[in-house]
Write a protein that binds this DNA or RNA. Structure first.
Lengths: 145, 145
DNA sequence: AGAAAAAAATAGAAGAATTATAATCTTGAA
DNA sequence: TTCAAGATTATAATTCTTCTATTTTTTTCT
């Protein structure tokens, strides 16, 4: 599979250093950063990079289908998922982490598998699971001994 | 079942006219209003009511478990669900309406029925279904004849 | 490679939603 | 009714995001 920079080039996007940095950062990113988190990280390498640039790059990557913006927010801020495919998320009630969940929720759920419900046509399902992540579960059981 | 004002009184909340109006409005509300939508409606009756009062009443009702704030937003604005119980929502791609879905998604879904996934403990599931609502489907089929 | 045109980055301002502050007014209990 | 506690109001402040004008960088064309 081509890497993200090649795909952007194929799509005729100008490859500026800032965009490349943002795209690469996201492609290696395992969590769901906000615009300012990305900005903070990349300022080490690009001290003059402005937050507006980050927002506009994110908008572009979204339009190109390289990333997605989540419906949920982190402390009031939009957060972005490096994986553009429909999938689901766990929000840990303890540590606040957001985890992408790999299982195929809609297709394995008989209710969603039927594609109309209450007379409405269902095209996509995005599920947010609230619970406790494995790390926090581990910490809890360690504490109890 | 007691009505919302009685429940608030039982919980020791000061029953100001503004709060009562907001609580009653929500209890009769069939959609998912934003703070400023509530404010606009109630200004007819309470011309001096400020938006800050609406926000603070919503915060209170949320804490008391009378309503919930949705994860999704309407045009960048937080929206509130008069039904505090976990349930699911359909977002119509055509008209933008948000509909509460009555079926019992988590409990009838085999993946969720097992309550741990990837080592994470699942406590609640909130699904956002994207699709076309029955009204818009009807309009479409009417057009086609 | 070099020049012109197009596009992007920057800094700063502007906008929108929400929260905080201080003063005034209401509520609920004594 | 009086008073303290709490709520509302108006306004200011904050926070996140978008916009604008200017400068800089890319890309294209030769």
């Amino acid at each position: 599979m081509k890497d993200i920079l090649e795909r952007l080039k194929d799509k005729g996007v100008s490859l500026t250093p800032q965009r490349m940095a943002i795209a690469e950062f996201l492609s290696k990113c395992k969590n769901h950063p906000t615009a300012d988190e990305i900005h903070k990280v990349l300022q080490a390498k690009y001290p003059t990079m402005s937050l507006a640039t980050v927002y506009s790059a994110l908008e572009l990557l979204k339009e190109l289908g390289e990333i997605q913006e989540l419906s949920i927010r982190k402390r009031g801020k939009a957060c972005f998922d490096p994986n553009p495919d429909i999938h689901h998320h766990l929000l840990c009630k303890k540590c606040g982490k957001i985890l992408g969940m790999e299982f195929d929720y809609p297709r394995t759920c008989p209710i969603i598998a039927q594609d109309t419900i209450n007379g409405c046509k269902i095209e996509e399902v995005q599920a947010y699971l609230y619970g406790i992540c494995s790390e926090c579960l581990k910490k809890e059981s360690d504490k109890k001994g």
